[in-house]
Every structure is written in structure tokens, then in C-alpha cells.
Design a protein around this nucleic acid. Structure first.
Lengths: 339, 339
DNA sequence: CCGATTTGCTAAACCGGTACAGCGATGCGG
DNA sequence: CCGCATCGCTGTACCGGTTTAGCAAATCGG
């Protein structure tokens, strides 16, 4: 015989299917004595629920979805995502919920996946990342009605539950640190301008520059790739008045920038200070190790998972959770600028 | 009304559920005319199959599983896995199959997940990676009978379909290249000795050393972490007779090694040549860029997916697919050793 | 001691598809 | 013109759970 079903258990234990269902789900309707007998039989027969059968009765699918839109071949799945995934799963698997992960080409394909998985009842909820300035995904997900947690608020529009960190405060802490060291010309290699967090960081830098009376502070948008990170760094360092410090929006770009500095013979941190907005193994292993913004991405993942599961339980809740502001870890890539 | 079902479509089109099922699945049993009408109605009502209902009829679950055993917080999901994932999904989503990804703490937990997902009918098959020397997972998966593709043969024992690359030939090409440059003292920072591919690489180096009459060639096992990569490199460079070339089993360790060399003032490639067994963005962005073994991991993922889907179709097939041997991409971290 | 409630269980409907037996209409060979 | 195969479709059982209506026995209150 193949997989045992509750009908097999019922026969074996001499009760009805309904009784077995009650017993296995810890619901009232059977005596304590019968429950124990049924549980023992189920145990002996090594029974497990058939997830599809469960999901069919209008119940939960037992999975949540995470869709990333990136060109397939260029996926670098940064340490950030690896950590996030890890945290998500730690929490999800504690609640026996699976994670469906999919990498697609672009936002249009991503939306299509939301529609499909939602109407196929394949998942109970979604995690939305890489929030854009005018994000077409929000409206779709609200319309679909599938519980969704947005990573990267604070809420702009829409009514989806949100988990966010204070990017603005983080950028301010970097700029204040550099200014305190004596830097007056600071460049910022930003990510894709379409991302909301990129905008917030750019604005934070501009505001801080005005307040701290910096001579020069500007953001250069990139596509987050190592190639653009390297090219933009090369352009900056070729200027006559070059910046004394560069802030990178990702660790990959920061490491690429460090490589360019080495290649051009610019001493780090002697002539140039580098800061990465993202900390990870990468920032630690290069020489000199990079000063970087550290956040507990694993914990962030756990928090997102908890928030999502809460939203699945109670789809009407309107949560907005703010996480700890990331803190700067000073390493050896930053120093007082040489006169 | 909520999601439309085939019953709704049947009512709307004035036919029976059975006819709708035939029409939607492109099976004979309805006239071309009726089929078109049904498809049009389904389109208008925006119908999608309920994945659970499909899976219930003994049919496919429409998903495959990939379980990685790594300590939760230390996941670095290397570029290798990111690329592999990407390739897997490109192929899987073309066949509308989802990927269930789970990161667990250790092999015991991994096996438990295989048992659970298999008996819950949550997936149609598994991808097995990080093959170990005496791998307890093989027997479990064979017993479960769920189609599984092993990445990293050649087949040792067991009868599961396998996809593998020739690690041995790859290592030989690296050593031959270094020997041709004039290197006679070569060290190898290997990965976990429990992994089959680590063993194969170690053996290949030993054999090549004998054949090429190297003065010294030895493998140092590590846990693949940046920390051990750095520590082992430091130890090697502190010797009186230090190696003139080091081969790293992963890009992360190679970059960490490069950092140590910079810190200790050892010139790369002047005094020390470095080779990474894994190519990725990392190897390209540091300075000097690393000579590395390049393989098309994306294509590997696609191939694994195709092989798995074939195994799901025909569980009795005994496939063994060998992929192209990776080729060495020479960059600036290797040179003739200084006398 | 009787009616009302609670307890412990059974039988059957149901979820949304798939698979298959069967049936009337049509076409075809002899 | 009859018997038989084929076509196009209907009706229904079925997958493995959950849920509900219902029922007999036990318990309770008055």
C-alpha cells in the first residue's frame, strides 16, 4: 500500500474519517481516549497530510511567495538577499510554511506571477521587495487581495502591511561620520533611481550636505552592477577636484570601487575613504576591510515572515513595523582626508 | 463571485464539466468549435486552474524541491548557487513548475524535509547538491521513490539520475597552466573534505604533481568560509618556503586570500599567483582581477532542471549527463614566479 | 422522572479538478 | 437498410482531506 490516508487510519482504528480528522487537528469532538488511539495509529502508519487535499478545502496553501525581478543571467543574489531568505525561512519553517522563490526577468513578469500564483491558490501571501517610486505592483496586489508584506516603506500609498528601516537616518549617520573626520567633498554611488530607497538616500545626502555645509556632495545613479560601480568610480577619480570620500549603495559596487582605486594608484584610506551602505562578507574580506553600514538582515527576514503570517491570519490588519536603524561599523577604509 | 471554477465555465458555455476539462487541456473529446467557445469563455472569466485540485487527482504537484543544508545565519549563498537557481528556474518556469527552496541547519534536517515534502506530495522531485563522500541522503531518496537528480556525480553508488562536471580535468588544467608558467610549489585551499568534489580535486592535484614533478603540492582543507580562507593563507605565507601559487576552491576564499596577501605586503602576481576554482563577479571586481575557472552555471541549472523533469516524466530512466569541462579564464592574478 | 443539553461519534457533502463509462447521433461498409 | 465504429458530449465517481448535519447515549436541572 502506498501513502496511508485518513480513511486507512479510520479503518484501522475502527472509527470514521471525521473522527480521525478531529483527532489529528486537535479539535473537540472526540474523547481524549479515542484521540490518543487515533494518534497512535497515525504515528504507526507514518501518516502525513496530503498538502493538496488540505489546500483544496478552501484552507491555506501552506506556502508564501517571494518573486524577484532581475535579468536571469545577471542574478548576483547579493549577501543581502541570502541573509533575508535565511531569516524568512527560519521563521516560516517554524510555522511549517514553505517559501516559493522565483526570479523573473522584469516587473511585468513579476506581476503576472502574482496573478497566477494567487489565482492558482499556490500561496497564502507574498513578500514584496525592491519597492519602486511609483510601484505598479502595489495596486495589483491590493486588488488580488492576497496578504502581502512590503519590505521598504514607510508607507506611501496603499494599505499593505509594511516593514521598513530608516534609510534616511542611516545615510545621515554616514555623512556625519565622514564630515566629522574632515571630509568636505563626498560622492554617493547610488542604485537605480527608480527604487524608493535610492531616492530617500539621495535626498538624505542632499539635506545633510546643506546642514553640514559641505563643499560638494552629489549622488551618481547606477544600475547596482559591478561594471557601473567601477566605471563611475573611475570617472570620479579622474576629475581634477576629486571627492575625498565615496559612499556606495551596495557592497559589490564598493568592492569594485576599491579595485579601481588600487588600479589607479589611489591610496585607501590615505587619499580616499570608502563606505559601503551594505555590510557582508565581501566588505570584510577585501584589503583594506570596508567601513560599512551593518544591519541584522537575518532578523529582518524573521520579522517580515512574522508580519506576513500575521497578515495571513488576519487579512484586515494594517501593520506598519519599523526596524532598528542600521549602525555604522568602522573598519579601515575610512580616515582623516590627507590635506 | 470569487474565483471561477470549471463548473462556472461549463454553465456559462452550456456544456458539462468534463467537456471543459477536455477543452482546457487540449485533449480530444470535444469538437474544435466547442473547444474554442470554451476557451473564449474561460479567457473572459479569467479562469486559472486551482493547483491543489489538480495535484489531488494523483497528478503532479507542479513543483520541485531544493534543500540546502547550511547553518542559517552563515548562508553566503555564493554566486554559484545564485546562478544555479537562476538557471533552474528559467527552465522550470518554462514548464510551469515552481521551485520550493529551503535552507536548513544540517543534513539530518534536510533528510527530514525530504520525507515530509515527499509524503505531503508537495513536490514532484528533488535536486540534490553538495554530494558527500558517504552520503546518507542517497539511500533515503531512493527509498522515498521521489524522482531526484544528483548534481555532482559521477555516480558512485545509487541509481539516481546524475548531472556532473569533470572536476578532475578542471583541476588538471589549472595545475598544468601553473606548471607551464614555471610554478613548482603549489598550495590548494580545499573545501570541506566531506564533499565528494573536494576529494576529487585533492586527488587530481596529487596525481598532477607527481606527473609534472612539482617540488611541493598539497591541499589544505577548510570549511569554505572567508575566515578559514584568510587564516590558512596567512599560515601559508608565513612559512619560510612559501608556495608561489595558491588555488582556492571558492571565490570567496580567493578574495579573502588576496586581501591577506595585500595586508602582508606580498605582491600579486609578482610574488604570488592566485587561482579561483569558481568564477563570478567577485573574481572580476577585485584588483588584480583573479584568474578563475569559468563554467556556465546558469546552463548547468537549466540542464539539471531538464534532467529532473525528464525523470519526473519517466521515473525509471537512469540518466547520467556530463557537462562541459570548465575552462580557465586567465586574468591578472597569475604570472611567471619571481626567481 | 422527564425534557433539555452536552458529549462522542457517524455519514455525507464539499472543495475543484481529472478520468472514464456510457449514450445518442452520425458515418460507413457491406 | 442494417450492424458497427466513431464522434462529441454528459454524468458521475474519485482524489484526501475538512466540515456540517444529525443521531444515540450520557448527563444535567428542576
Amino acid at each position: 500500500m502506498g501513502r496511508p490516508t485518513i480513511a486507512d487510519i479510520a479503518r484501522q482504528a475502527g472509527v470514521s474519517k471525521g473522527a480521525v480528522s478531529f483527532a489529528l487537528n486537535g479539535r473537540p469532538g472526540v474523547s481524549e481516549q479515542t484521540r490518543e488511539r487515533i494518534l497512535r495509529v497515525a504515528q504507526e502508519m507514518n501518516w502525513r497530510p496530503h498538502s493538496a487535499a488540505r489546500a483544496l478545502g478552501g484552507a491555506r496553501a501552506g506556502a508564501v511567495g517571494l518573486v524577484l525581478a532581475r535579468p536571469a543571467r545577471t542574478v548576483g543574489v547579493e549577501p543581502f538577499f541570502a541573509q533575508l531568505l535565511s531569516g524568512l525561512q527560519a521563521e516560516l519553517s517554524a510555522c511549517s510554511t514553505a517559501l516559493q522563490l522565483l526570479v523573473v526577468e522584469d516587473t511585468a513578469a513579476e506581476i503576472e506571477v502574482y496573478r497566477r500564483w494567487s489565482s492558482e491558490h499556490r500561496v497564502d501571501g507574498f513578500v514584496l521587495v525592491d519597492l519602486q517610486v511609483h510601484d505598479p505592483r502595489i495596486a495589483v496586489l491590493e486588488e488580488l487581495g492576497t496578504p502581502t508584506v512590503v519590505l521598504g516603506g514607510p508607507r506611501r500609498q496603499g494599505s499593505l502591511p509594511t516593514v521598513w528601516a530608516d534609510d534616511r537616518a542611516a545615510m545621515l549617520s554616514i555623512v556625519e561620520y565622514l564630515a566629522a573626520l574632515g571630509h568636505r567633498r563626498i560622492a554617493h554611488l547610488a542604485g537605480l533611481p527608480a527604487f524608493l530607497h535610492t531616492q530617500r538616500r539621495i535626498r538624505a545626502l542632499r539635506d545633510a550636505a546643506r546642514r553640514l555645509e559641505l563643499v560638494e556632495a552629489y549622488s551618481v545613479p547606477t544600475d547596482f552592477s559591478d561594471a557601473e560601480g567601477a566605471a563611475a568610480t573611475r570617472a570620479l577619480l579622474a576629475r581634477r577636484e576629486r571627492p575625498t570620500a565615496i559612499v556606495y549603495d551596495s557592497d559589490v559596487m564598493a568592492v569594485a570601487g576599491l579595485g579601481v582605486a588600487a588600479e589607479m594608484g589611489v591610496a585607501v584610506p590615505g587619499e580616499l575613504s570608502l563606505v559601503s551602505f551594505d555590510d557582508s562578507v565581501l566588505a570584510r574580506i577585501v584589503h583594506p576591510p570596508l567601513t560599512a553600514l551593518t544591519r541584522d538582515t537575518f532578523a529582518l527576514g524573521e520579522l517580515v515572515a512574522r508580519t506576513l503570517l500575521a497578515a495571513v491570519e488576519d487579512p484586515l490588519g494594517r501593520l506598519e513595523v519599523k526596524t532598528a536603524t542600521p549602525r555604522l561599523t568602522v573598519r579601515e577604509s575610512t580616515a582623516v582626508p590627507r590635506r
